[in-house]
Design a protein around this nucleic acid. Structure first.
Lengths: 333, 333
DNA sequence: CTGAAAGCGCTAACAT
DNA sequence: ATGTTAGCGCTTTCAG
């Protein structure tokens, strides 16, 4: 059996309450007593039982993170931001993968809530009614990280993907392109269908250009699928001379498809992508990209969650972080 | 206040013990009673408190994962393997980043143990005496994933990096190369210094070749540092014609360094790397590589841990998983 | 098959 | 400044 607070109390000839005070840094302890207790703790190798503490205090200092897939660099980077701020505020994180399944998301909410997490950070492609119901009935704060909610106004941290896509498209238009494609990730993802796609269309319409649906291609956001997508795009009689992609991995799929046709980037095709990893920087030519501050998205989400858990006043619960365009080699000068 | 087991008991006109039995799937409950209780649970929206359960049963169904950096694809992939098997056996995971700091690793052991995790999976570059002491005094099973321990024989899951490096080097020798470099990650990492480096040297010596220390380059395992390393290697009077790298990211650094000198791969330099991500496959030329089964490393580690936590008999606690060489384009046919 | 009761290890009033 | 005590919500004997 492990050492308990009782063992320490007996050893130090004080009550368990005093030991508890010492452990919790309560100032109402005479320095001499404190030292005596600390010595015993050291000597016995006492380690407070966080589970008992959690039951008694109703705070577990643990938060839950529900993410589609922690192995994807997008979420891995975001999660690292969460983890670092969590550490800073002395929280542990329980992380679970939903694989974007609504039923799994609901299960995970129940699971994490059952574990009495003090708060939750949720990421998903889109929010289903079932999940919204879970969030409504949860008794702890929830923050959406990089995840959109159009119905309600839950605390969230995002960048303005619509505006970013608009700017990317506009830049391509200004570069003289008439045929600009948008190779997207799945449209089941709000960020793609509702943000990037809409920004793309807004820029085209503003320039008085036609929307050609054959230039809007949905992929599953993987390299292989993107590579295939150029098989379609490249065979168009009037093929695109520029493309915006929803991620750097997709851009590289296009890029290799283009290269295997002996076309060149940026001479024959200009590419601007959303950057989610180191990929954009290490391929040649390097990819001009909207840099998405994934780490910060996670860090700010967690910071926001700490405020909510502390019941602090938060002026703005829907945070929008800045992004920027990094000019590299996939666009002509 | 949340619904407790008492509320359900009162509502169902049974004792809390019976509710507990129902919740825990105990067979000693009359079907009619079970149904009645289940109905009340449903109606009241009762959700068992895992913290109270953990305190009473001394099992939290949570395991700890200590990892250098969850944002690195290497560990992200490995962690996903852990997470999936954890889910399968109904465990949650608390994951923390050590950033390879020994003192942080020790803190995290204490932290996780304090949270009463039922087991731990540990990953690190090398095991320090302080950490070894933590592991010795821990009262729960610990599995090392992709991490070496030379002193003791803790449960672990690995691949044979030494043999893999030997085979890679031998293949390069058989291809006729006389100057073969090894661009490594940090030698503070046992896997590099003690395994890959040793396998590399073994192959050279077996072929009667000299060990030229200038061909062994230590990097911090990043793209940028690897790129710089070619500045050194490429300027050698008798420069290498082949190179083994400890990761695909490092290989790409070399590759771009080579390309910026207008040399070609594989004509002027052959490369074989250890593959830790999608990178090896999406760059051109694609990289011939030792495929490291990261996901499986994690999954098998977790499976092993479940057996240990169940006190099952385990015949072999030091598991070695197979790897294979994927021939692609960075080596001549 | 069901209930009563004793903890699990700690926090947080409430006393002193 | 320190001690006493009543829970926190559940599991787990032990009875019956």
């Amino acid at each position: 059996m492990a050492i308990t607070i009782y063992d320490v109390a007996r050893e130090a000839n004080v009550s368990m309450a005093t030991v508890s005070r010492v452990v919790n840094g309560n100032q109402n302890v005479k320095p001499a007593t404190r030292k005596k207790v600390l010595d015993c703790i050291e000597r016995l190798g006492y380690r407070p039982n966080a589970v008992a503490r959690g039951l008694a205090s109703k705070r577990t200092t643990t938060i839950g993170v529900i993410v589609p897939d922690m192995s994807k660099s997008y979420y891995a980077e975001l999660s690292r931001g969460i983890a670092d701020v969590a550490t800073m505020y002395e929280y542990n994180i329980i992380i679970s993968n939903s694989d974007k399944s609504t039923s799994r998301e609901v299960e995970l909410f129940e699971d994490h809530l059952g574990k009495q997490v003090d708060g939750l950070i949720f990421m998903s492609d889109s929010i289903s009614p079932e999940v919204r119901k879970e969030m409504k009935t949860a008794n702890v704060p929830i923050v959406l990280a990089g995840t959109l909610d159009f119905e309600t106004n839950l605390p969230s941290v995002n960048i303005d993907h619509e505006q970013a896509a608009y700017e990317v498209t506009k830049k391509l238009i200004d570069n003289g392109h008439k045929r600009i494609a948008f190779v997207s990730g799945p449209f089941t993802r709000d960020i793609n269908r509702v943000c990037k796609r809409v920004g793309y269309i807004r820029a085209l319409e503003e320039a008085g250009m036609m929307i050609d649906e054959s230039l809007i291609v949905e992929t599953d956001n993987t390299y292989d699928d993107a590579y295939e997508s150029w098989n379609v795009l490249g065979k168009l009689s009037d093929r695109p001379t520029a493309v915006m992609t929803s991620s750097d991995e997709v851009a590289i799929g296009i890029m290799n498809g283009v290269r295997d046709e002996n076309l060149r980037i940026p001479e024959d095709l200009e590419i601007i992508c959303f950057q989610h990893s180191i990929l954009a920087r290490i391929v040649r030519p390097q990819l001009t990209a909207i840099v998405v501050p994934l780490y910060d998205l996670g860090a700010v989400s967690m910071r926001l969650l700490t405020k909510l858990m502390n019941k602090e006043e938060v002026e703005e619960t829907e945070v929008v972080l800045p992004y920027y365009l990094e000019e590299r080699q996939s666009v002509k000068k």
